[in-house]
Design a protein around this nucleic acid. Sequence first.
DNA 1: TTAAATAATTTAACACTGTTAAGCAAAGGT
DNA 2: ACCTTTGCTTAACAGTGTTAAATTATTTAA
Lengths: 199, 199
Amino acid sequence: MASKDRIQRLKDETRCNILEASLNIVKEDGWQALSMRKIADKIEYTAPIIYEYFANKDAILNELTRMGYIKLARLMTEARDLYEQPEQQLEAMWISYWNFAFAEKELYQVMYGVEVNCCALQGSCPDLAAPSDMLWDKIAEILPADKRSDENVDMKYYTFWSVVHGLISINMTRQLTNHDLSRQVLKDALTGIIASLKN
Amino acid sequence: MASKDRIQRLKDETRCNILEASLNIVKEDGWQALSMRKIADKIEYTAPIIYEYFANKDAILNELTRMGYIKLARLMTEARDLYEQPEQQLEAMWISYWNFAFAEKELYQVMYGVEVNCCALQGSCPDLAAPSDMLWDKIAEILPADKRSDENVDMKYYTFWSVVHGLISINMTRQLTNHDLSRQVLKDALTGIIASLKN
DNA sequence: TTAAATAATTTAACACTGTTAAGCAAAGGT
DNA sequence: ACCTTTGCTTAACAGTGTTAAATTATTTAA
């Protein structure tokens, strides 16, 4: 009967190896490069074996997503517990969220649907710059003359863009489904940032 | 010699048809469903023909991206020109950006790397909710008692999340490469929102 | 110990994917 | 009429996720 345990332990280990191998492949060559056969190669099996442990490829992604959330929660808890005041704790948690995103880039990508391949075209044609230029120029126009440095305009521009794009992304990936609430957040944020331009 | 023109016109039309067919497929079944053979089917040719017009599949995505930016610039210009005051113009442009994202969801996705498939698992396990719960609770704790309604906490939570996730996304898709500037925007935004909690 | 049953693993296959090379058929020029 | 160019298709390659069948190894029973 103890052999059952041993076998179970080996199965658990293989399951773990599959997840580990997957993450390694992604860290080396990106999500695009992750394939069942490559995973099988890494764990020194053939592809169909993986289906004994996961229903399909998506199930592996889901499990990695879950692992990401668990790790993020741990890091945020640790960051929070370094402080006493709620305001400092809240800030520490968000900064910990930020740090996690870059320390575990691949996990963050699968958790929140940030594509990597997209937008490979960088400043290749003026069409791509037109919208951002329009916004940038208008921000510069509103900012008081003594604060109209390139860096200040950049700061405000990216603040706007972050909140708007972030809100859109969260909506599109269905992490926020209340569209009315979204619009309200948008309105509030926009008026808030616009107000902050003029002082 | 006029026949040359006619032929050129037909070629231009086919090129346009490829882009149109691609966008239709994506609108019907998502980016995942877009394949060279399906495009060929729609324009009633076989797949290799497409390579006469585009170097590869990526080139099609790039062209759709470009079309997206052109359309976005047009909409933003129209929105801006409805107003006189710079502040109103700026707000109108961002709202126009927001509206474009949902009116042309597929274009926005390819322009800014928002994955669709990801995070299909919704509230399936408590692990996924842990990080957001931690943040939500801390926001509730800081908010003055008379403003501690679920809706108010939600608003603030999503404001935080939008700006942080948006900034991360913009960084990861390499639309903003200056990491120091990012951190500064992050810090400013966080202290700004935290300050706004207590009044 | 040997035979039967069960489990573990692989090979083969299917229907896809992007992409390229070879072949064919129609049109144009001489 | 022939030759050349163009337009288009068929066939193929290497890869993908996934499933069914075949094979090998291990455990159980006699």
